[in-house]
């Protein structure tokens, strides 16, 4: 089990090899990519920041929870920080297990919890020239709603 934050480009093929085990019959991964728009605005690039000490702790707790809830063999999650371009890989989750069902469910659990709980922040830079921290600035605007 490993959760880490890194500024270098993610290399899922390297982390994937850590998950291989003779007891595993299935492997599921999730890749989160930088998208070119959010809530109707054209996005040019993103900046991710992390509170690394606490992010690493909370991320490790999420992986441990996944292993308790679902009978998986191993799980790894890596989140990138720094400036990212459209199409870049921002977060990667990999899970291996004896059978596919628990790998799918654990992978889903991990990415959902990471997005809600791990202290990582994302600033979007828009084509309009504006920029803003997601979930902080847009939501402070009167009349803003999620579509």
């Amino acid at each position: 089990m490993e959760f880490r934050i890194q500024s270098a480009q993610l290399r899922p093929e390297e982390d994937r090899s850590e998950l291989e085990a003779p007891s595993c019959g299935g492997y599921v991964s999730f890749e989160g990519w930088v998208r070119d728009r959010n809530e109707g605005q054209e996005v040019l690039k993103l900046e991710y920041q992390a509170y690394e000490q606490l992010a690493t702790r909370e991320g490790a707790r999420i992986l441990d929870e996944a292993a308790v809830k679902f009978p998986i063999e191993n799980a790894v999650c890596v989140h990138r920080v720094g400036e990212l371009e459209i199409g870049d890989l921002a977060v990667w989750v990999g899970v291996s297990s004896g059978h596919r069902d628990e790998a799918f469910r654990a992978c889903r659990y991990i990415i959902d919890e990471v997005k809600q709980r791990v202290p990582v922040w994302k600033k979007e830079y828009y084509a309009s020239g504006d920029s803003g921290w997601v979930n902080c600035e847009a939501c402070a605007t009167p009349g803003h709603s999620h579509g």
């Binding site: 991710y48 509170y51 989140h79 990471v114 809600q116 990582v120």
Partner: peptide, 10 residues
């Protein structure tokens, strides 16, 4: 001490 604004990973 660190204050943690709403997170937005992923």
């Amino acid at each position: 001490v660190v204050f943690i604004p709403p997170v937005a990973g992923g």
